[in-house]
């Protein structure tokens, strides 16, 4: 395998003109080809060992793109789904009812999730005002395959100790396998919840498809 100056400079993390200088000074093994230097991989590896330099030629070190963070809100909502007719009179009971209804959460973990959600609510209420709450656990839920946002419309508004002391009627569960996604979804969601039109739209208790379309239009109007 042969490498060019540019390729090698990427592997070593130095500028191409540093490579050229090293060649000129005779510090790098080079198999000259015309005016463009070429390097043989096996010679380079020997050289790297001799100089105690870390060099991994076979594995292109592309910095890992943080694909997790680009999870879109619509995908998460699609996964999480919309649930109606959640009954209950206090925080714990509505949370329990919501979790029971949600099919995406594995049965074995439902109790654990509920405990975590309740614990989170005790620490600080997730009621953000305007009758919304965004209950979520503080830890990542590694058993989930992908992040989800499930929206639960309550039968009766519940006192949620929200910021504006209004009773809460809609819950947005954010359940993520990784914390980074969580932050991203939370920011996207709260952006939507500040939109007056969207709030009015939520009052109509829309179905999943309409809801997703609405979110898409809002996001299109305000690209990040």
């Amino acid at each position: 395998m042969e490498l060019s100056v540019i390729e090698l400079s990427k592997h070593l993390g130095v500028a191409p003109n540093t490579i050229e200088r090293w060649v000129r000074q005779g510090n790098l093994p080079v198999s000259k080809k015309g005016e463009n230097f070429k390097f043989r991989a096996n010679e380079l590896e020997k050289w790297a060992v001799k100089h105690n330099i870390k060099l991994n030629l076979s594995d292109k070190k592309e910095p890992k793109k943080e694909t997790q963070t680009v999870v879109s809100l619509t995908d998460a909502v699609q996964k999480g789904g919309v649930y109606f007719d959640i009954s209950g009179n206090d925080v714990q009971s509505v949370l329990l009812a919501s979790i029971e209804k949600n099919n995406e959460i594995p049965e074995d973990f439902k109790i654990d999730l509920l405990e975590r959600l309740v614990e989170r609510e005790k620490a600080l209420s997730t009621g953000i005002g305007n009758g919304f709450a965004i209950p979520h656990p503080r830890e990542q839920l590694s058993y989930l395959e992908s992040p989800m946002v499930s929206i639960c419309f309550l039968d009766h508004p519940v006192d949620y100790k929200a910021l504006d002391n209004k009773p809460v009627s809609i819950l947005f569960f954010i359940l993520c396998p990784e914390l980074k996604m969580h932050l991203h979804l939370l920011s996207a969601l709260s952006f939507c919840l500040r939109d007056a039109e969207f709030i009015a739209f939520l009052e109509t208790r829309p179905e999943l498809d309409q809801l997703i379309k609405k979110i898409e239009t809002i996001q299109k109007a305000n690209p990040v």
Partner: peptide, 13 residues
């Protein structure tokens, strides 16, 4: 610092 170290390795090895 990164390049200085590499250069030092190069020159002293």
């Amino acid at each position: 610092l990164d390049l200085y170290r590499r250069e030092l390795i190069m020159q002293t090895s």
